[in-house]
Design a protein around this nucleic acid. Structure first.
Lengths: 199, 199
DNA sequence: GTCTATATTCCGATAGAC
DNA sequence: GTCTATCGGAATATAGAC
């Protein structure tokens, strides 16, 4: 079926998101112009406004989509057949493998929160906290079961998240380490942090 | 001694740096205008150019000053009377206490590196790597002494730095935890990561 | 759906008076 | 050292032709 010339909404739409993500991560939201995004996509600036009402909403939709997918793919409850240390290992593996090929999204999710209007900011922050709460639930379960030796589960949660997400800052495919190596080491470090390593 | 009206270089200079740091951290380098900075300082935009040749150099001088002071205050060698675990504990305490009241600098040092010209970027990156090498030296010493059980000292260094620096993202003075509480917990977690905790 | 053209605003940086 | 004024350019977003 031939398509009318100049009608490419199902192609152009994702290209706009991809280009915006890449450019926002590379240069920062404020430094990227709508003309730059349009140029990457291969259209003129005016055409972008068929896909987003404004630049701010374009950023928000990227971050919202990221958090929604993260929350939909992460196990929202601890499977009952797993012990706390097994659940923690699974969380570490999930977190690293999910984020490792999304370093651009991780970067702008952390950095361009401030570029969001307050209402949009609040929605992203709430999603992030919900995700962190999943990890803290694992730590509390390990505390309760006597498997983990943690004094402050909130502090340990924040320390773990920072350690794990930091991988996206330096990991490069084809580098010295494979993803499996990285997850194995980080699982061990995570178990050690909570006092559950098997020596 | 009376001062000539309109002459305030020793007062205005630091105010320019302070205002630029705060605004860059809040809104991002590209989003902040020289007019905004001038307005914060209480002068007109043109007057800023008595203190910096351009906006880019203003950012670089902030980051360079930060790294220079960090490197000058951190112990550049491991005191010989300290064991590796004592040296690690000292590093953790230094890193947290140094950075905890400099969250703006930490933030822009991580985020606005990309806003630097390549030559300036390289200088900041080199300083950052030199700092990380100080931590890795401690880990290698612990490995050699048999005090630490680490498979990959580079990986452990990156994990530790990420975990420790993450404190600046959430710590607030007057909050639930005092700095001493935070450092105590993080020293324990750091020792656990390297396999040197005393159970 | 995309284009061209444009209204409006703001930017970094400089020149010259005081 | 700070001011006012300004140059040259680029920004977001919109209007209307096709």
């Amino acid at each position: 079926m031939a398509r009318k010339t100049g009608s490419h909404s199902d192609i152009t739409g994702p290209k706009v998101q991809d280009a915006a993500l890449r450019l926002f991560a590379r240069d920062g939201f404020a430094a990227v112009s709508m003309r730059q995004i349009a140029s990457e996509v291969g259209v003129q600036a005016g055409a972008l406004y068929n896909y987003t009402p404004d630049k701010q909403t374009l950023l928000f939709s990227l971050l919202k989509g990221h958090m929604d997918e993260l929350l939909s793919q992460s196990p929202d409850a601890i499977p009952s057949h797993l012990s706390a240390d097994q659940a923690l290992a699974a969380f570490v593996e999930f977190h690293i493998t999910y984020h490792i090929d999304r370093s651009d999204l991780v970067f702008i999710s952390y950095m361009e929160l401030r570029s969001l209007e307050p209402a949009n900011f609040a929605r992203i922050e709430a999603a992030r906290r919900a995700y962190e709460d999943q990890l803290e639930a694992i730590l509390r379960r390990g505390q309760a079961d006597g498997v983990f030796r943690i004094e402050d589960s909130k502090l340990a949660t924040l320390a773990l998240i920072a350690m794990l997400t930091g991988v996206t800052n330096w990991f490069r495919r084809g580098g010295r380490l494979q993803i499996d190596d990285v997850t194995r080491h980080y699982v061990q470090m995570a178990l050690r942090i909570v006092g559950a390593d098997k020596q």
